[in-house]
């Protein structure tokens, strides 16, 4: 019970600066010339109108669907590949790692036009962009986790006659999980960010498109509203994956990749 009240207290304390910010915004918006900053009351009104007209949630669903597809694809590719490179094929690392590092440096913003040439501006291009942006943090963190497995543990398991499969499932995988989840958390943030950006650059549906169309139509309150909405969504995504990571981090501190 007391922990509940301390949670409530924490929540109230935490929301004070945010409420202050909104008051400041409301007052500030009244002082600057009209048509630059819209006051939060109007912002929430237009956001409410967008939400009740289902347009907002439909675009959100489209964007999140794209993120989900790209993210799932990237997990399916990066985690097995990271394990292979981090454990059984460490010798291949010297051959592959500089190439991967180079690819990692290839900015997703720079590659969006190239993906557009191949895939158009539809869902396929968005999925490819998310895939590309999330692949590298996932891959590198999985590799770091798999490589950092304590060698004496592997030897101990081997001397007890563990097969390769057992070795992998019972030693290497649990040991590498915290690092994988660091990668997953990073990638989740990045994927949501990139989907909005790539939809702003070129799309005909999705949350980013909704934002940019509000901007071009000069619907200022709606535009600020969508910024708020996107921010809250990305905080929620962060919170979710942070919780998930904590769940897997209980027993071991992750090693840092360098």
């Amino acid at each position: 019970m007391s922990s509940f009240w301390s949670d409530v207290k924490k929540f109230v304390y935490g929301s004070i600066p945010i409420i202050l910010f909104f008051i400041f915004w409301e007052v500030g918006a009244g002082m600057v010339p009209k048509g630059v900053i819209s006051p939060p009351t109007e912002v929430f009104q237009s956001l409410w109108a967008a939400a009740t007209s289902e347009l907002l949630f439909r675009q959100t669903a489209i964007s999140l669907g794209r993120v989900g597809m790209g993210f799932a694809l990237s997990i399916l590719v990066a985690i097995p590949l990271g394990f292979l490179l981090g454990t059984f094929f460490q010798s291949a690392e010297k051959l592959l790692l500089p190439f991967f590092r180079m690819c990692e440096k290839l900015n997703p913003f720079a590659i969006i036009p190239i993906f557009m040439i191949f895939f158009g501006i539809g869902t396929a291009e968005k999925v490819a962009v998310v895939f590309w942006a999330t692949l590298w943090p996932l891959l590198f963190n999985t590799m770091a986790g798999a490589r950092a497995v304590d060698y004496s543990l592997i030897r101990a398991a081997r001397s007890m006659g563990a097969t390769r499969r057992e070795l992998f499932l019972k030693v290497i995988l649990p040991y590498a999980l915290p690092n994988i989840f660091i990668g997953v958390e990073l990638a989740a943030q990045l994927s949501f960010f990139m989907i909005i950006a790539s939809e702003v650059i070129g799309a005909s549906t999705g949350l980013g498109w909704y934002y940019i169309s509000a901007t071009t139509k000069y619907q200022l309150p709606l535009m600020y509203g969508i910024v708020l909405y996107i921010t809250v969504l990305s905080i929620l995504i962060n919170l979710f994956f942070g919780r998930l990571k904590k769940h897997f981090l209980v027993w071991k501190e992750a090693v840092q990749i360098h």
């Binding site: 304390y13 935490g14 929301s15 004070i16 600066p17 945010i18 202050l20 910010f21 630059v36 900053i37 960010f193 909005i196 950006a197 702003v200 980013g208 934002y211 940019i212 901007t215 200022l220 535009m223 600020y224 969508i226 910024v227 996107i230 921010t231 990305s234 905080i235 962060n238």
Partner: peptide
């Protein structure tokens, strides 16, 4: 500690979509 929720909130605004707002301001 007090302003942490607020700073986290601000830091989560994607800078990329702030660009049109900066252009307006």
């Amino acid at each position: 500690r007090f302003i942490r929720p607020f700073t986290v909130f601000l830091s989560q605004i994607p800078p990329y979509i702030l660009f049109p707002i900066f252009v307006i301001i």
